[in-house]
Simulated scan of single mutants.
Amino acid sequence: MPLTPLDIHNKEFSRRIRGYDEDEVNEFLDQVIKDYEIVIRENKELHNQLLTLQEKLDHFSNIEETLSKTIIVAQEAADEVKNNAKKEAQLIVKEAEKNADRIVNESLSKSRKIALEVEELKKQASIYRARFRTLVEAQLDLLSQDGWDSLDSSRDRNEDTERQREVKELY
């Protein structure tokens, strides 16, 4: 067990002849006690500082460990989010491709239908024109026949006779 300032203060030396000067020894011991007390006080302060710093070091070590774990967890979460986003993007692209294919196929089908309808309408228009031409030609043939002149004169006579009857009925 180390010496304390009280041990030094209470220390008694035996007396001999031709020994050391007692006052000088006491003065020296007093000086040693003062210096020793200062050293002990400084030692306690340094010890307290060491404990405080050790507590801070432990605290910061815990924070560092927590931050490391948090960074690892955050990195794992980021990787998972990234992977999920890639998968979702791939699904969206596949769905968009399917929709695009469907739209293209529908458009092609509609285009074919419309082309067929246009062809059908062209055929119908051609048939209509041919029939109309035939009708008009038949009508022209009818008009160019000789019998129309006699119809015109008999019709004029019939109209005159008809008018005369109407006039007689009025009077």
Rank of each mutant, 00 (worst) to 15 (best):
R129D: 13
E117M: 03
A130F: 01
K113T: 15
E97N: 02
H47D: 13
E120V: 09
R102Q: 14
L57T: 10
R131L: 07
A100S: 05
V93S: 00
K82S: 09
F132A: 15
K56Y: 14
F60N: 10
K69P: 11
E88D: 01
N62P: 06
Q124V: 02
E95P: 01
I114P: 03
S109A: 11
L50N: 12
V104R: 04
E95H: 01
E80C: 00
E106Y: 04
K110W: 05
A125C: 11
Q75C: 07
N99P: 02
I63W: 01
N62M: 12
A100E: 03
A74D: 10
V73T: 15
T70V: 15
D101A: 11
T66N: 10
I103T: 08
I127K: 10
A96L: 12
R129G: 07
D58H: 05
R102C: 12
R133A: 15
A89K: 00
S109Y: 11
A96C: 10
K98W: 07
N84V: 04
E55F: 06
K86Y: 15
H47L: 15
S109P: 05
I63V: 09
A125M: 12
F132W: 14
E65V: 13
S111D: 13
S126N: 12
E76P: 01
D58A: 07
A85L: 04
S109N: 12
L116H: 08
K110R: 09
T52V: 11
S109F: 10
N105H: 03
N105S: 07
V81N: 06
R129Y: 12
V118D: 02
I71Q: 12
E117H: 02
S68N: 14
A125F: 08
N83I: 15
K122T: 12
V93Y: 00
A125P: 09
R131I: 07
R102W: 12
Q49L: 08
Q90V: 03
S107Y: 07
K113R: 10
E80P: 00
T66I: 10
L53T: 08
T52F: 13
N105G: 06
N105F: 03
D58P: 01
V104M: 04
D79Q: 07
Q90A: 06
I71E: 14
S109L: 09
A100P: 02
E88W: 00
N99T: 05
H47A: 14
K87S: 09
E95C: 02
E117Q: 05
T52W: 12
I92S: 05
Y128L: 13
K113Y: 09
